[in-house]
């Protein structure tokens, strides 16, 4: 469980996030949605400590991450897995080496154990035959899946995914969404996903948090979202003709 208490962040004079409080529960897929530029990536980077908060606290199962030093954070970070917006695979390493990398850093496994574990994770994302390829040799969807395999290599307790299916076709997106959902259930992780894809919202949104211009305006589950009374949220969800049509027949 991750508890976020009253966090705010500004860059120079620009307020990017204001006073956000929210709880992300264990074993659930928590979605952060909002327009481009609303602050989703910044929020996620605050959670993992890539950017420091100006105010507020973040607790990982009761541990206050905000006040920790580098070493203490490293202990918590062992339990993190993160899928970046662009995949962020290491170009100079093969797919298999990418997945082995976090194991090299954190685990005391033998070389063959690490490779077995990496192969297992690649199999989990249906890429068991791509281990020898370099990131430049695989498709965007495959990169995302490798990034997921790398993120789950250490059996994380907390999984962060920044737009895991942006730039992918709807079918591949759903495959990736469901993969994340399955893994979350299977290992009882606390999963947080940034997205602006309504398909994802309706497919795997156990909990949905709507960020609008840096503030949290709404939260609920995929079952509540169709009836929400929040105007900004409705403008966001029902932005296209297609979604308005769905709402009419709902």
């Amino acid at each position: 469980m991750i508890e976020v208490q009253n966090i705010s962040k500004s860059f120079a004079d620009k307020k990017v996030l204001q006073n956000i409080s929210v709880t992300f529960e264990t074993g659930k897929t928590n979605l952060i949605i909002g327009q481009s530029g609303s602050g989703k990536t910044v929020l996620m980077k605050l959670l993992v400590g890539l950017i420091e908060v100006d105010e507020g606290n973040i607790f990982f199962d009761g541990r206050n991450f905000t006040v920790m030093d580098f070493k203490e954070r490293k202990n918590v970070r062992k339990e993190f897995g993160m899928v970046f917006q662009g995949g962020a695979l290491f170009d100079s390493l093969t797919v298999l080496e990418n997945v082995v990398f976090p194991l090299n850093v954190f685990s005391n496994m033998s070389k063959s154990e690490k490779i077995d574990r990496a192969q297992f994770c690649l199999k989990r994302v249906n890429l068991e035959n791509a281990g020898h390829l370099y990131p430049s040799e695989i498709s965007g969807g495959m990169k995302k899946r490798v990034a997921i395999a790398r993120a789950i290599a250490l059996n994380p307790k907390y999984l962060f995914c920044d737009e895991p299916n942006s730039g992918l076709d709807p079918q591949t997106s759903i495959v990736i969404d469901n993969l994340i959902k399955e893994i979350t259930d299977e290992y009882q992780m606390t999963t947080i996903i940034n997205t602006h894809d309504m398909n994802s919202v309706m497919e795997i949104g156990d909990k949905i948090v709507f960020i609008y211009k840096g503030s949290k305006l709404w939260e609920g589950s995929k079952h509540d979202i169709m009836q929400s009374e929040c105007d900004e949220l409705n403008d966001f969800i029902f932005a296209s003709e297609f979604t308005r049509l769905i709402k009419k027949h709902f």
């Binding site: 890539l50 970046f84 962020a88 290491f90 850093v105 954190f106």
Partner: peptide, 9 residues
């Protein structure tokens, strides 16, 4: 990729 390294501590 640098963020990915940092996140691993």
């Amino acid at each position: 990729q640098i963020d990915a390294l940092e996140i691993m501590g």
